[in-house]
Design a binder for these strands. Structure first.
Length: 302
DNA sequence: AACGATCTCAACCGCAACGAT
DNA sequence: AATCGTTGCGGTTGAGATCGT
């Protein structure tokens, strides 16, 4: 509020970058290194906002950027990481060398989101999602629309986790059949994203749910959450899009925040243990310290 | 070939976090 | 402690490309 804009829009060029501009920026950054982006345009002779220069450099001109389509490994990594940290694109990008947060965000919004939505629509949640969507469209109440968005995002997350769960289960089955130590380790690796579901269905999850119900938190999350819990999915699991929304979060209150944090603390602890136990190169999975950080980021109600 | 619909992705915008003063 | 300036992040937009009819 009342903040001065990052640049004076008068006379500052916007839109696509010309090759000459790119060259000026690359030459300057290679000579002086990145830093002081506000002064950079003036010093480099660019008629651009510093912010625009920084974005152009980090998302496009940086020499270590990997261009081209995403590989299967990268695809899977994004799915895994998004299931854990949600829309923390910079965190996901940090685990994928050569990829930018913007690139991953675009990839998610265009390819993965669509794919997961289609898969979700095949499931039983389709009717509920459609009902919510139509109700929100029909309603002129912003709160109703907001709740529908929140619920849709949650359903997407559940579908995603279900997908990961089923694929992990398949891998575990085949690995067991093969009964080799290396394939078992690989199966554990594959099963890692399923940790939330396993935790949720474990005794820890059971006591967690009882505790949540006792405090009325489950009721506050609505009937859809209850049905999701019955289906074995973490109803309170923060979803990517909705989880970022503080206004929706505020309706749930601090009890839900404690629930989230408690459950996530347990999840992160187990993930960290798993990570340590396997003792293998785990490029598709964040290190223990990142997981710890993820648990903090999962506190949407603070 | 022409046109509209849909998709992709580079770039922009606003906000929050952080460090300096 | 308060204020200001800078940077980083996530959400959104829109122009160009591609696809379908």
């Amino acid at each position: 509020m009342g903040r001065t804009p990052c640049c004076d829009s008068k006379g500052i060029k916007k839109g696509p970058w010309a090759p000459e501009e790119d060259k000026l920026l690359v030459d300057f950054v290679q000579a002086n290194g990145p830093g002081n982006w506000r002064m950079l345009p003036k010093l480099a002779g660019l008629n651009r906002c510093g912010k625009s220069c920084r974005l152009r450099w980090t998302n496009y001109l940086r020499p270590d950027i990997k261009r081209g389509p995403f590989t299967t490994e990268e695809h899977n990594s994004i799915l895994h990481l998004h299931a854990i940290v949600g829309n923390k694109w910079s965190m996901i990008a940090a685990q994928l060398p050569g990829r930018t947060d913007n690139e991953i965000k675009n990839y998610w919004n265009t390819h993965l989101k669509k794919q997961l939505r289609q898969e979700a629509l095949v499931g039983a949640d389709a009717a509920a999602a459609a009902q919510l969507a139509s109700a929100a469209t029909a309603s002129s109440c912003p709160a109703a629309r907001h709740m529908a968005q929140w619920e849709t995002a949650r359903l997407e997350a559940e579908a995603r986790l279900s997908l990961l769960s089923s694929s992990a289960a398949t891998t575990v089955t085949s690995a067991t059949a093969a009964s080799s130590s290396s394939s078992t380790a690989a199966a554990e690796h594959e099963a890692a994203p399923d940790i939330f579901l396993r935790l949720w269905n474990s005794a820890v999850g059971e006591s967690f749910r009882c505790s949540a119900q006792g405090q009325g938190a489950a009721a506050a999350r609505g009937p859809a959450a209850a049905s999701a819990a019955e289906a074995g999915a973490p109803a309170a699991l923060p979803s990517g899009g909705g989880g970022d929304d503080s206004s929706a979060a505020s309706t749930n209150g601090t009890e839900a925040a404690d629930d989230y944090q408690a459950f996530l603390d347990m999840a992160v602890e187990e993930l960290a243990l798993l990570h340590g136990r396997l003792g293998v190169s785990f490029s598709a999975f964040p290190p223990a310290d990142v997981l710890a950080e993820a648990s903090c980021l999962f506190a949407p109600f603070e």
